[in-house]
Design a protein around this nucleic acid. Structure first.
Lengths: 257, 257
DNA sequence: AAGTGGTCTAGACCACTAT
DNA sequence: TAGTGGTCTAGACCACTTT
């Protein structure tokens, strides 16, 4: 079942002729071809590494190198110990539209799901306190959620809410309702300003576990601070997205004008 | 010169005792320690891979795995075939402040430099035409620049300007002057709206070459469309940043309010 | 129980950089 | 010219998932 690749000379390293194309990029081409042809198979799962390595007559390490390149490009992704998959189209995430996750995903004809991993009250750590403009150790609600699109876990979020602003909020349904909707309907608080910090990093172990991903996998961090009509910081979100899952968007008038 | 690591049991694979800490994370710890102690050495250059691999008694492949993890975290970076370096602090890039590169970098006590790689007129490719709202093949100016911070090349930009808006702009000094400044001073065009698209990808070969980086290295893409006071798209920028070089920032009123 | 991905070993050659 | 990073080979064991 060994498909012959262009320039597939198994012992070309010992060959006087120069390799026309380096194995990795041949491999990538071949893999892309494979994705184009076969991948639309329901699950989007790729063949096992050993199968691919045999099919393309290469080593596991070399094959993985090529796969990880495609992962970095956002074309494929892996689930820990489960294998490689074709990446679905990116979700468009308009930062200033401030749509709740559920609405944002649904409006793009995808299926949103949420799971609450933790919801407690605790004292504010220094970093959280600084961002919320409150004293270290002041009470905050700490909510951790994992969110899925079409069944695939793509987002790990930690929310920190000023406890004094939202008494009893943990009693509400945190799976179905959006937090900003609760702010408005139950606490009369509207969000009048948001500020974001975006940076590309990696998944820490807890996030990785929640996303069925490899710890250290590529991630896009989006942190967000919401301010109410009085300019007071009311909550702070720390989002970690699988980096291939989103495309961020901003549209506004520049401030210099 | 071999430093003993905690749990450094060279043949632990054949050992009945479980490894207390996996080699890669031991390695990462050790490397972080090394960075903390020695790295502030002027150039920020790390020892050669072979030296590190001997020092930490491991394999080159395993060592590189650990280094690439740190690269993904944005703590170190590499220059193609030149070695590994400690990452300088990220530049804060406020998308809506619309500060020219030079001012933005200087305001953060860093030293900006610019190099023009290409500046020509050419017909608009489909993608460019679509974003500028002009006909395919309509004339655009195509400018490619590489930009450095403190001597390190971090940004590869391609600009596409509507040629009908900016006659003769290629005659100007594109190294020293900001484009938006030229728009205002010579063409009476102000930017009244911007729209961004952000997404994490990899460096294509031209960008990699310009940034002395490995092709396929981690990158942050920032595309930007500028609109004038009549709501007409006047230029389109495609920026590729070394992913560890920036931290993006947005602050504004959400649009739902 | 079989197979998978995750990790690790122990080498090697080449093109390029630094000296 | 010596040494470097980039790439590749040919194996191996383990913990976990899947069947």
């Amino acid at each position: 079942m060994t498909t012959t690749l262009p320039h597939a000379t198994p012992f070309s390293a010992n060959n006087a002729l120069p390799r026309l194309t380096p194995p990795t990029s041949r491999l990538q081409q071949a893999l892309l071809g494979m994705l184009a042809e076969e991948a639309p198979s329901a699950t989007g799962r790729l063949p096992s590494e050993r199968q691919m390595m045999e099919r393309f007559s290469t080593t596991r390490i070399t094959l993985r190198e090529a796969l990880m390149q495609l992962e970095a490009e956002g074309r494929i992704y892996r689930e820990s110990r489960r294998g490689w998959f074709v990446s679905p189209p990116r979700l468009r995430y308009d930062l200033l539209a401030s749509l709740p996750f559920k609405e944002m995903v649904a409006s793009q004809q995808r299926c949103p799901e949420t799971e609450v991993l933790k919801a407690t009250q605790c004292p504010a750590q220094p970093k959280v306190a600084a961002r919320l403009g409150i004293l270290e150790g002041a009470p905050v609600f700490h909510i951790i959620r994992a969110r899925r699109i079409d069944g695939r876990p793509v987002l790990y979020v930690e929310h920190y809410l000023r406890a004094d602003c939202f008494p009893g909020i943990l009693e509400h349904d945190l799976v179905t309702c959006s937090l900003t909707e609760l702010y408005r309907s139950h606490y009369g608080i509207r969000i009048s300003r948001v500020s974001f910090e975006l940076c590309s990093t990696v998944l820490h172990s807890r996030a990785a576990e929640a996303l069925r991903a490899a710890s250290g996998g590529p991630a896009q961090r989006v942190t967000r601070i919401n301010y109410d009509q009085n300019g007071r910081a009311i909550d702070y979100d720390d989002e970690l997205w699988r980096h291939d899952a989103i495309e961020l968007t901003v549209s506004a008038a520049p401030q210099g004008t």
